[in-house]
């Protein structure tokens, strides 16, 4: 298991993940600082950012002292120099799912955060252009949420009459 970077916020909770990953569980306040600490510690690339909706799976493994909320933003960082990966999972609540945007640290998260917003409705504070990316502009709802009705198909062309 790899160690936390020296600049990491104190009290960051961690677990060992499958396949030698370090998985960190920062709070929303620690989140940006932790990613910044990893970046200054040689994690040059943010390879992936995605959302997860834990609405119907409450019993996931979390470190002690952390309350799991409905949404999670999962960030995978990669260090080319150390050949290491680290995963950061930050919780976002149901009422207003909002976390800090990583855009100022890794420009490449721009499209990924837009995707998480589009499909989960997670808001990213500080993102320059938080609009839908995969779904049409006038789409209702966020399709990857667990309470999104799969059988209910809003018609894509708004002028056409719906099937039901």
């Amino acid at each position: 298991m790899i160690a936390l970077p020296p600049l990491a916020p104190v009290g960051t909770l961690c677990l060992e993940g499958l396949a030698t990953d370090l998985v960190c569980f920062p709070t929303r306040e620690q989140y940006f600082d932790l990613v910044a600490a990893f970046k200054s510690d040689g994690f040059e690339m943010c390879v992936d950012l995605c959302g997860v909706d834990y609405l119907t799976h409450p019993g996931r493994a979390l470190p002690e002292g952390l309350v799991g909320e409905r949404f999670e933003v999962v960030v995978n960082l990669l260090s080319l120099s150390k050949r290491q990966r680290v995963r950061i999972r930050v919780q976002a609540n149901d009422e207003r799912p909002e976390v800090a945007s990583l855009f100022d640290l890794y420009v490449g998260t721009e499209a990924m955060e837009r995707e998480a917003f589009d499909l989960f409705g997670i808001l990213f504070d500080g993102h320059p252009d938080l609009t839908r990316i995969l779904m049409p502009e006038d789409w209702e709802g966020h399709p990857l949420r667990k309470d999104y009705g799969v059988g209910r198909v809003p018609v894509q062309f708004k002028s056409a009459p719906g099937p039901r």
Binding site: V52, D53, H57, G108, A111
Partner: peptide, 26 residues
């Protein structure tokens, strides 16, 4: 990349693909 969350059932709870083209397009 492939990110899978399993809730212990026979179907993935969440399956996410980190698509290289999606990121490279930026």
């Amino acid at each position: 990349g492939c990110y899978i969350v399993s809730d212990g059932g026979p179907k993935p709870y969440r399956i996410h693909t980190r698509a290289p083209s999606f990121v490279n397009l930026q």
